[in-house]
Design a protein around this nucleic acid. Structure first.
Length: 265
DNA sequence: ATGTCATGAAAATCATGA
């Protein structure tokens, strides 16, 4: 089972690039973020023509997440539990069944800038709600995937220029501490789990986002903020994890690229 | 620092979010 996450930065603007990538990458499941559209604005036909069922959790203008699946899909839920008054569409779950069932959670974590401030407070509160939901799902002792745009740079080696991010909500100590708490619950960072051996001082350059501004892509001035975290039972099935970096260099690209895993499931 | 992009409301520019 191949599961991908991709922040597309607008379903309307990105449809051609998204379909080109789907046709070549052929993931069984694609978790999309930043639809920037209501549910009714997401076309189904181009995906259904390719064998994908479409489940969306949209919002006008901003945010919005979706699950595309070529495998049987059930028990779809929308919204991150823990605050019924939160109107932001940033979380969707479903169970997909290949050789065995896998619970997939697609997430678009708040950016949090400027920090400090109310937006950063929302990011930290959202992370606390996510910890609670992760804890619930881990108790099932089943394969579970938490994939999406985390808006978290976990470590200095996840940025080309870490010194430029020290005051940023994506890299502040509290943000990184919340990331470490997630891992401490028992989750595995898929990209880091399968990377080839490198010397400790190596610049890893496994980036997933390059700003549109200031020639960031041309300079490879990127950050790694799109992640797939795996429950222990999912990590046991992990066969591969890759970043589709060349997608960033194509025509009319998103500022993020797809990241995917292959599971023996 | 920003050399950008997408969206929506308002009305062919601007505010917002990233």
């Amino acid at each position: 089972m191949k599961i991908a996450t991709f922040n597309i930065n607008g379903i309307k603007a990105r449809l051609p690039a998204l379909l080109d990538w789907l046709d070549e990458a052929r993931p069984d499941v694609a978790l999309l973020q930043e639809l920037k559209s209501v549910d009714e604005g997401v076309p189904h036909e181009p995906f259904e023509d390719r064998g994908y069922r479409v489940e969306t959790h949209g919002q006008k203008g901003f945010n919005g997440v979706a699950i595309l699946s070529r495998l049987p899909l059930e028990d779809v839920t929308r919204g991150l539990p823990g605050d019924d008054a939160d109107p932001q569409a940033r979380w969707i779950e479903a169970t997909v069944t290949g050789a065995r069932p896998v619970r997939v959670c697609g997430l678009y974590l708040p950016n949090g800038n400027p920090a400090p401030g109310p937006k950063y407070d929302y990011k930290l509160a959202w992370l606390a709600r996510m910890e609670a939901r992760v804890t619930e799902l881990l108790a099932l002792e089943e394969p579970v995937i938490f994939a999406g745009d985390y808006n978290i740079i976990p470590q200095p080696e996840d940025a080309a220029r870490p010194e430029a991010w020290t005051e940023d909500a994506l890299f502040l100590p509290q943000t990184r501490a919340a990331w470490r708490r997630l891992l401490a619950l028992g989750l595995t960072d898929a990209i880091r789990a399968v990377q080839p051996h490198r010397p400790p001082a190596a610049r890893l350059r496994d980036f997933t986002f390059w700003d549109y501004q200031a020639g960031a892509w041309d300079r490879d001035n990127g950050i790694r903020i799109d992640h797939l975290l795996l429950s222990p039972q999912a990590a046991d099935l992990l066969e591969d994890a890759q970043i589709d970096k060349p997608v960033r260099g194509r025509e009319k690209p998103s500022d993020h690229v797809p990241v995917w895993i292959e599971l023996a499931a």
